[in-house]
């Protein structure tokens, strides 16, 4: 790896780390979803420091083209991240389903209660009215 390329990749990794850490700091990214991204940034930042060792490892593993090892690791990392998101979507859609159902059921109950209350109020008013009239008569008589 060319020394300049190493510096670029190192800086890119550093930038990713700073960006992700800042996102977590400002609470726009939760810690549990930040871990894989931090790992990715770390790998980017560290890989150029060990480029020669990586080259040798790749050759030892039978890669004709050494960067292919890096690409493969990158793809595996990306797949892991996407899978984590899929898991998350599943649990979130389950939560949303239950919440939506509960919301619908509760709203129905609230409306039924409100209706019953309104009805009861009308009934008590209808009952109270004659009493009040009588009271008024008594007062008038007194």
């Amino acid at each position: 790896m060319n020394p300049m390329t190493r510096i670029y990749v190192f800086l890119l990794g550093l930038a990713v780390l700073i960006f992700v850490i800042n996102m977590v700091r400002t609470r726009r990214l939760q810690e549990r979803y930040a871990l894989l991204w931090l790992l990715a940034g770390l790998v980017l930042a560290i890989a150029p420091l060990f480029a020669n060792q990586l080259d040798r490892l790749a050759t030892a593993m039978g890669f004709d083209y050494a960067p292919a090892l890096l690409l493969m690791l990158a793809v595996i990392g990306l797949l892991l991240m996407i899978f984590q998101i899929s898991l998350n979507i599943t649990s979130q859609s389950e939560h949303l389903k239950v919440l939506t159902q509960e919301l619908g059921l509760l709203r129905q109950e609230v409306e039924a209660l409100a209706e019953a209350k309104a009805k009861a109020k009308v009934e008590t008013e209808a009952r109270v009215e004659p009493d009040e009239l009588r009271q008024g008569d008594e007062e008038g008589a007194a």
């Binding site: 389903k97 939506t100 159902q101 919301l103 619908g104 059921l105 709203r107 129905q108 039924a112």
Partner: peptide, 10 residues
């Protein structure tokens, strides 16, 4: 009918 309305399509 008694109606339970889901606010979004599930």
């Amino acid at each position: 009918a008694t109606v339970v309305s889901l606010p979004v399509n599930l």
